[in-house]
């Protein structure tokens, strides 16, 4: 990836973060912390990797995205709007009555959502089903799935991993958003993860580790993971910061599910705007 593309991708991630903060501020509810930690992976998927057709959201051969940690859907909604799946103004309707942008993603209401999620631990199994369908039909599409570190407390995650390994789903990329905070506290405090990387490895995944908020590092491992057609499902354990990009939200547990007030919103937007990198002419 050349410098120009990298800069453009980083700026997409910044724009995505700004839209996330705007949406949650306007909705007066939502989950900013995890939406910001997963933003770089989301931007990488929608602006570098995923083969999708915004004008034909259910195109059968598209790459799929499964947001297993469904509460951070503002990040996916922003990405979908930025890719042209629906007009940008729709973002202002987040969590409002009649909106396609439900508090947790609904595939029957929102174009570009490949599976409804929101109840933690369930999305990965659905992603496994999609990747399996591609194998059964001998198609090339891939499945990108974002799971939370806290979400890995759920047993169904590990059941799904077993199936991914058994059926050699090398078309599946799982991104673990390792921001080390869950709703009630740190991962160590609530349910020590021991080592998520070693766990996924033990379940038959090819595991990569990187700074999940460093676009260059992330794309480097994503490139490798997607190139390795070796019969192994892929897992990227991305070390991230909950609330990344907004100083007062970073690593603060209470920003899991709280909307910023007007003042906090203004400060967040100012800080995020400062992250834009001027593109070379």
């Amino acid at each position: 990836m050349d410098q120009k593309e990298l800069t453009a991708l980083k700026n997409k991630a910044t724009e995505l973060r700004i839209r996330v903060i705007d949406m949650i501020w306007k909705a007066r509810s939502g989950h900013p912390g995890g939406s910001l930690s997963v933003a770089d992976f989301m931007a990488a998927c929608y602006f570098r990797y995923m083969n999708v057709r915004p004008e034909e959201p259910r195109w059968p051969d598209r790459d799929r995205f499964v947001l297993s940690k469904g509460h951070v859907c503002p990040a996916q909604y922003a990405a979908l709007a930025m890719r042209g799946f629906f007009p940008m103004e729709v973002l202002d309707t987040l969590r409002k009555e009649g909106s396609p942008l439900q508090g947790h993603p609904s595939m029957t209401k929102c174009p570009g959502i490949d599976i409804s999620t929101g109840s933690l631990g369930q999305g990965l199994a659905c992603g496994v089903g999609m990747a399996l369908a591609a194998k059964l039909d001998r198609k090339d599409y891939r499945v990108f799935c974002a799971v939370g570190d806290g979400e890995c407390n759920e047993g169904e995650i590990w059941e799904a991993c077993g199936t991914a390994h058994k059926y050699k789903l090398d078309n599946l990329v799982v991104f673990v958003d390792w921001n080390n905070l869950q709703l009630d506290g740190t991962c160590e405090e609530i349910m020590p993860p021991i080592s998520l990387a070693r766990k996924f490895e033990a379940f038959g995944f090819e595991v990569y580790e990187c700074d999940g908020n460093d676009m260059e590092a992330l794309c480097e491992v994503m490139d490798k993971a997607l190139a390795a057609k070796n019969g192994l499902p892929k897992c990227i354990v991305g070390k991230t910061v909950k609330g990344k990009g907004v100083s007062y939200m970073e690593n603060v547990c209470s920003w899991h599910g709280t909307a910023p007030n007007d003042e906090q919103h203004a400060q967040a937007i100012e800080e995020l705007n400062a992250l834009y990198i001027k593109e070379e002419a």
């Binding site: 599976i115 089903g129 990747a131 399996l132 059941e159 799904a160 077993g162």
Partner: peptide, 20 residues
Amino acid sequence: VGIAEQNGAGVAAGLATCGK
């Protein structure tokens, strides 16, 4: 999918989104 009912339901849902 082994003795893993929850996963079985989820895998089936994913398969169904792809026309199975």
